[in-house]
C-alpha cells in the first residue's frame, strides 16, 4: 500500500517539522516526569528538538547527527554518542525520539517495551506507554493546530 504521507511542514527532502506540547509521566518518579512545549525538526539521522518553558523561553535545544548528539541548556552543553543516550541522560527518561518521527507521521514503528496509540493522530494527539522495563512511563503529545 502507499506509504503514508509525512505530516507536518516539509523543509527538506524527507525532513519534517512538528510543534506542540509533550508530557512524559514516569510512575512514582516525578524527577523523570516533565512537560514542555516543543519543536521537532529533521529526521532520525539528523535533526533538532527544541524544548520551551511555559512562558515561552527556550529550556533546551537538542541537536543530533550521525555519531554525535548535543544538548544545550541555559548554561551548559552536554554531548553523547547517540541521540537516545543523550535524551536518557538529559531528561533522565527514555523518550524514543527516533520512533517519534515515525509515530508523528502515522507510521506505527515498534519500539521494544513501548505501545504507541496513533488512533487520534488526525486530531493531533499521540500517546505511547512504556510497559517494560518498569516503571511504567506514559508519553502524551499534542500537536499545535
Amino acid at each position: 500500500c502507499a506509504a503514508p504521507l509525512r505530516q507536518g511542514a516539509q523543509d527538506g527532502a524527507t525532513a519534517s517539522s512538528w510543534s506542540g506540547r509533550l508530557a512524559l509521566q514516569v510512575q512514582d518518579d516525578a524527577r523523570q516526569s516533565f512537560s514542555a512545549a516543543f519543536e521537532l525538526r529533521g529526521r532520525p539521522e539528523a535533526g533538532e528538538l527544541r524544548l520551551f518553558n511555559p512562558l515561552g523561553g527556550t529550556a533546551g535545544v537538542l541537536t543530533w547527527s550521525p555519531g554525535r548528539a548535543v544538548l544545550e541548556t541555559g548554561g551548559q552543553t552536554r554531548q553523547a554518542a547517540s541521540l537516545e543516550e543523550l535524551v536518557a541522560q538529559a531528561t533522565g527518561s527514555p523518550i524514543p525520539v527516533t520512533a517519534l518521527f515515525d509515530w508523528l507521521a502515522g507510521i506505527d514503528t515498534p519500539v521494544p517495551g513501548w505501545k504507541a496509540d496513533l488512533e487520534q493522530l488526525a486530531q493531533g494527539r499521540i500517546r505511547a506507554q512504556r510497559l517494560a522495563p518498569p516503571p511504567l512511563a506514559d508519553l502524551r503529545v499534542v500537536l499545535d493546530r
Binding site: 506540547r21 509521566q25 512537560s35 511555559p54 502524551r140 499534542v142
Partner: peptide, 23 residues
C-alpha cells in the same frame, strides 16, 4: 488561545495546568 493553559503562583507553589495534556 491557541490552547488553554493556566499558570498560577499562589505564593508558595507555581502551578502549571495544561488542559489538553490533562497534566
Amino acid at each position: 488561545k491557541p490552547f488553554e493553559q493556566v499558570i498560577v503562583a499562589d505564593g508558595q507553589t507555581l502551578w502549571l495546568h495544561d488542559l489538553d495534556l490533562n497534566q
